[in-house]
Amino acid sequence: MLNWIILEASSYAAQIDNVILIIALLGGFWLFAAEFVLFYFVAKYRRSRSPKALHITGYDHEHNKWIHWSHYAVIACDIVILVFAARAWYHVKQSVPEHVDEEIRIVGHQWAWEFVHPGPDGKLGTPDDIDLVDELHVIINKTYKFHLESADVLHSFSIPRFRLKQDAVPGREIDGWFTPTVAGTFDVPCSQMCGLGHGIMGGRIFVETEDEHRKWLDSATGKTAAIPGHSTGKLASTQGRN
């Protein structure tokens, strides 16, 4: 639903937007119903049209049934919302996909994101890791697991177009995942107040095709000869699964 306001650019964006749509429909129904009845009463029972009010306690069944059945209906709506919300939550936050193509490390700083890419060997924590500030390069339709940390205060790693958000907490490593599905360059703002530069802290994520990504990798490592073979091998091995 939100696609017409903001692009759905990850594998789970549509699922989250569906939860939002369902709440909008159910909540919207109750909102309009309640507002309609309210305005109807205000119009109908103006003193000019209704000079004498009724005396109703609100305890007899004839009158309070209107409150009772509607509040059972609200509970039913709550359950529907709960099911969809919990399913989306479980998919995005509680489970990690069985197959992960690459892992990245993200560190929040006052006031920039540090993105550690695994580099040509595809493994984190090796000397060929590519460590960039405010610049994250990923390949379209690959699944990434991220390890989120903070070097100082709370930050929040947010990619609105992926419908992804996760706070970074100093002293902890929080894992999460995403699969970009649309190529392009998107904002990665910080969404948790982190001090003076919070309002201008923002990186960019570059969702690239494999060719573009390889070119970037070449330029980033500066080793154009040997490493690409390495890299291609890694990429080729995962290609069948996507």
């Binding site: 109750w30 309640a34 009845v37 309210l38 009463f41 205000v42 029972y45 103006r46 003193r47 209704s50 000079p51 004498k52 009010a53 009724l54 109703i56 609100g58 009158h63 209107w66 409150i67 509607s70 509040h71 609200v74 509970i75 709550d78 919302i81 709960l82 919300a85 919990a86 939550w89």
Partner: peptide, 27 residues
């Protein structure tokens, strides 16, 4: 999420009761 959605029950009930107060009123 469960507890938060539950709170919608008394709050909607309260809102409906307020709207119900206007039924048959002389406003």
């Amino acid at each position: 999420t469960v507890t938060t959605l539950l709170i919608s029950v008394p709050i909607t009930e309260m809102s409906f009761v307020y709207i119900g107060t206007l039924y048959g009123a002389s406003i």
